[in-house]
Simulated scan of single mutants.
Amino acid sequence: MATRDRRLAEFDGAGEPPPGLPVEVLCEDHSGTYQLPFACRYVEGRWQNDAAGVPVEATVIGWRVPRMKHSGVA
Rank of each mutant, 00 (worst) to 15 (best):
M1G: 15
M1H: 12
T3F: 11
R6W: 07
R7I: 00
L8S: 08
L8Q: 09
L8G: 03
L8Y: 05
A9D: 09
A14K: 13
A14F: 00
P17Y: 01
P17S: 04
P19N: 00
G20C: 11
L21P: 03
L21H: 08
V23C: 05
E24Q: 13
E24P: 06
L26Q: 04
C27R: 06
C27A: 10
D29H: 09
S31Y: 09
S31E: 12
T33N: 13
T33K: 07
Y34F: 12
Y34C: 07
Q35P: 11
F38W: 08
R41L: 11
R41Q: 12
R41F: 00
Y42I: 02
Y42L: 01
V43R: 12
G45L: 00
R46V: 11
R46L: 11
R46M: 09
R46F: 08
W47G: 07
N49C: 11
N49G: 10
A51Q: 15
A52L: 12
A52K: 14
V54E: 12
P55H: 07
V56Y: 04
E57A: 14
E57G: 09
E57R: 15
A58V: 07
V60C: 09
V60M: 06
G62D: 02
W63V: 04
R64K: 11
V65Q: 13
V65H: 11
P66T: 02
R67V: 10
R67G: 06
M68A: 14
K69A: 14
K69T: 14
K69S: 14
K69N: 10
H70K: 15
S71G: 15
S71Q: 13
G72C: 12
V73F: 10
V73C: 10
V73Q: 13
A74V: 14
A74G: 13
